Simulated assay, not measured.
Amino acid sequence: MSETRFAASHEWIRPEGEEAVVGITSHAQEALGDVVFVDLPEAGREVEAGESVAVVESVKAASDIYAPVAGTIIGNNEALSDNPGLVNSAPTGEGWFFRIKPRDMGDLGNLMDEAAYEAKVAAE
């Protein structure tokens, strides 16, 4: 996952060609506890970096999920509607939230790499 980048708000983004997949980090899902519901964004929605685009609800709390970069939502993970626990069991795999077509792929460079994200988490 070396191309994966991380936002300070605990989302990860992994480029796949001219689009990218977004989810929450393992650290974030551990802090949330058992995920019971996910409200996903609609395809076609234009978003800005840092904009709240989804909501994840756990047995502990509801939390916003933010767009790590500006762009257009092009799809979401319908599997989470039937099985929100995928966020817990596979946060960086099958538990992804949405696909985005970034306005500028270069914006991913403004996010943390894995080492910087791990250092941030360790410092919290």
Rank of each mutant, 00 (worst) to 15 (best):
D82Y: 04
V22H: 04
E19I: 08
V59P: 09
H10M: 03
V55A: 10
E51S: 05
G75A: 00
N76P: 03
N88K: 02
A43W: 09
I13M: 05
S63N: 07
D64C: 00
P68Q: 00
W12I: 01
A49D: 12
S52T: 15
E30V: 02
K101R: 15
V21A: 07
L40F: 07
T72K: 14
R103M: 10
V38A: 14
G75T: 07
H27D: 14
F6K: 09
P102Y: 10
P91L: 12
A123P: 14
Y66A: 08
S63T: 13
I100D: 06
L108M: 04
M1Q: 09
A62H: 03
E3L: 13
G93Q: 10
E94K: 13
M1F: 12
A61E: 11
A119M: 13
F98K: 01
E42C: 01
P84F: 05
A61Y: 01
G71F: 06
A90N: 09
T92M: 13
A79D: 13
S9G: 07
D34C: 09
V22I: 10
T4K: 12
N77D: 00
E51V: 12
R99G: 05
L86G: 07
S2Q: 12
E94F: 07
I24K: 03
A116R: 12
P68W: 05
G17A: 08
E124W: 03
A79G: 04
E3A: 14
R45I: 11
P102I: 11
I13C: 02
V35C: 05
V47G: 00
